[in-house]
Design a protein around this nucleic acid. Structure first.
Lengths: 190, 190
DNA sequence: GTCTATATAATGATAGAC
DNA sequence: GTCTATCATTATATAGAC
């Protein structure tokens, strides 16, 4: 057993514990609603340590959420199957409670004035610009932006608004329709 | 001139002033970030009056924002031109600072636990179910949900994330692409 | 490295005078 | 109908003891 009041000194472990708790909190409640006290309590440490390790709540968000805003996994396969892969992924993904879900964290934090700009920059540079380069062809930026708009809107309605028609049990009807639209944008490169 | 400290007693005018200020605040900052004091100050009245007239911040949101969550205007025309009308509307709309913008208010408030459920109910019943009935045909609920997902995601990226490729000056390239996708969902009724 | 205690500033809501 | 004054709560952040 460890000491009751003071933790064993372990900078790396403490840092990771805070980071993990922050990912859960930002995913579940968004930036504004997630509280430093809650994050510290769930990490099993004192509030003061969060600021010591990450400077501020914003600094914590920068490390916990911002780097994860990307769709690199979807760009690792072939362009001809992007629509199908993206549609299946977004139509079936479920949030594991102890993990960061970047899309949910983004959707729940997008209304916050504090992190709005960093979220914008991340989506613009790490998601859309990167996807545009991967797509190539004419109007790549616009096609990439429209693709991401579809994905973001779909996830918003499916998991935040809880629209029943988009639930996983209807994937057989939804996924093909959704995949086709996405793939049309990919293929519309002249 | 009216009295300096006390307003002329006018329940209807006071109520409207609060409502107008609330619409601006909820549009600009979302439910959580909008403050009762700010709303009261902008309406030129005392904070206590807000609670007197609307019971609570939630009650104010219920009157100021919830009923406006609909796309009735887009459903007043012909089904064959829905895609074009919706694409043009969403690709060019700009928020007039002294008005409610329902989509922005929704996007900026969606992360709030307090109003999440009422927003879900409103989008589900007032927007998607209504659009589904108007669309008709097979899988109407799913097609309606996918259409709204496109519109919501598009507005999110265009006006909240500020993606340059979706700005009004590129409407000539964006709108036709966007319109086609929307219309495909409308026409896919068998 | 970790904690306690506190500074400072907001918040939504309400009781009661006028 | 409108206001003042205040309650009770919460928030992030920090100084300093151990």
């Amino acid at each position: 057993m460890t000491a009751a009041k003071k933790r064993v000194r372990n900078a790396a472990a403490t840092r990771e514990a805070i980071l993990a708790a922050a990912k859960r909190a930002f995913t579940a409640k968004g930036f504004d609603a997630a509280g430093m006290r809650d994050i510290a309590a769930e990490a099993g440490i004192n509030v003061a340590l969060v600021n010591r390790y990450f400077g501020s709540k914003e600094g914590l968000f920068d490390e916990a959420v911002i780097p994860a805003l990307n769709i690199d996994d979807l760009m690792s396969g072939d362009r001809s199957t992007f629509g199908e892969r993206a549609a299946t992924y977004f139509a079936t993904k479920t949030h594991q409670g102890d993990d960061l879900d970047p899309t949910l964290a983004f959707l729940r934090s997008a209304g916050s004035a504090v992190v709005a700009e960093r979220l914008s920059d991340a989506v613009d540079q790490q998601v859309i610009a990167k996807l545009a380069r991967w797509l190539g062809g004419k109007d790549a930026e616009q096609r990439a932006a429209l693709i991401i708009a579809q994905l973001v809107g779909f996830d918003m309605l499916r998991r935040m608004v809880n629209i029943e028609a988009l639930a996983p049990q209807h994937i057989d009807a939804v996924a093909p329709r959704f995949a086709k639209v996405l793939q049309d944008y990919v293929d519309d490169a002249d």
